[in-house]
């Protein structure tokens, strides 16, 4: 499979029903507007990269999707679960949402008191009701998939940053999510370790996983994602097929941002 183009042709993606829909998502902290009127819809198998300057609301948008940060306005729909801003979602709605969404954090957030294996197995047992044996078997497969089966009995502190982030990916995959959210997954890693994480993400994308990736990795955005969204000041300033947006941005704000990052 070619590594330079996405596995799914753009036309194909657009014709499918959306897996995730955001309608008019807004988020304010006090009087500070972080997100304003974000609409986004994602088809199954689509890989979307969100790029933009710091403070543009990229991470907050991701966190609004799985309600770690409840949006102030708007609607999040995934499958047949809709969560409306303004009233607290029921426990069941939250569960339905989070079971379908895996999330990978910038700082990994592995559980330091549990072995690598238990990190991956915990939610399978508590959320999916698998037995420990079943969960551990699935976890071993997932760890093998990210190349870390030999670390299963170690504690996270014994693993490198890149390994920890790959374990975090395995942990997020353990619930069989329909969508994976990545919040700057390589920003806390030195470039070499970042590569091994990007390689795992690329494999996931090629395997047909639906992904939203907030990133500063411009090459990943251009080569792996189907669509690129550029955010600035809490709004989407430009979006489109990755090649087009990255090479030929239309808006002045997007041009300015891409110019700045490409000049480095």
């Amino acid at each position: 499979m070619s590594l330079n183009s996405s596995s799914i042709p753009q036309a194909d993606v657009a014709s499918r029903p959306p897996l995730l829909r955001l309608d008019a998502i807004g988020k304010t902290f006090g009087t500070h507007v972080v997100l304003e009127d974000i609409d986004l819809s994602l088809a199954a198998g689509e890989v979307v990269a969100i790029i933009g300057p710091s403070g543009s609301g990229k991470s907050t948008l991701l966190r609004c999707i799985n309600q770690l940060e409840p949006p102030t306005t708007g609607r999040v729909t995934i499958g047949d679960t809709t969560i409306e801003a303004g009233h607290t979602p029921t426990r069941r709605e939250l569960m339905a949402l989070r079971r379908n969404i895996g999330m990978v954090f910038q700082s990994f957030n592995l559980f330091p008191h549990l072995t690598v294996l238990r990190n991956v197995s915990l939610a399978q047992e508590r959320v999916m009701g698998r037995t420990r044996e079943q969960a551990d078997a699935v976890s071993m497969q997932l760890l093998a998939r990210v190349g870390l089966a030999d670390k299963a009995q170690q504690f996270p502190s014994r693993c490198s940053g890149g390994q920890q982030q790959r374990i975090a990916i395995a942990r997020a995959l353990a619930l069989d999510p329909q969508i994976m959210l990545f919040d700057e997954p390589t920003s806390a890693l030195d470039p070499e370790l970042g590569l091994e994480v990007l390689a795992v993400m690329r494999e996931l994308a090629e395997g047909g996983m639906t992904m939203i990736v907030v990133t500063h990795e411009m090459r990943f955005a251009e080569n792996v994602s189907d669509r690129v969204i550029i955010m600035a000041d809490g709004r989407i300033v430009e979006q489109g097929p990755s090649g087009t947006v990255m090479r030929n941005p239309q808006t002045e704000r997007a041009q300015r941002f891409l110019h700045a990052v490409k000049d480095r």
């Binding site: 799985n66 770690l68 426990r91 569960m95 989070r98 079971r99 969404i101 895996g102 999330m103 954090f105 700082s107 957030n109 592995l110 559980f111 915990l122 939610a123 508590r126 959320v127 975090a168 942990r171 997020a172 353990a174 619930l175």
Partner: peptide, 20 residues
């Protein structure tokens, strides 16, 4: 981040407290 990770993998409040 520990609480957020526990929430993100779908643990309810009590499980997050107990296991994480």
């Amino acid at each position: 981040g520990q609480k957020e990770a526990a929430e993100a993998i779908g643990l309810n409040h009590l499980d997050a407290l107990r296991y994480v």
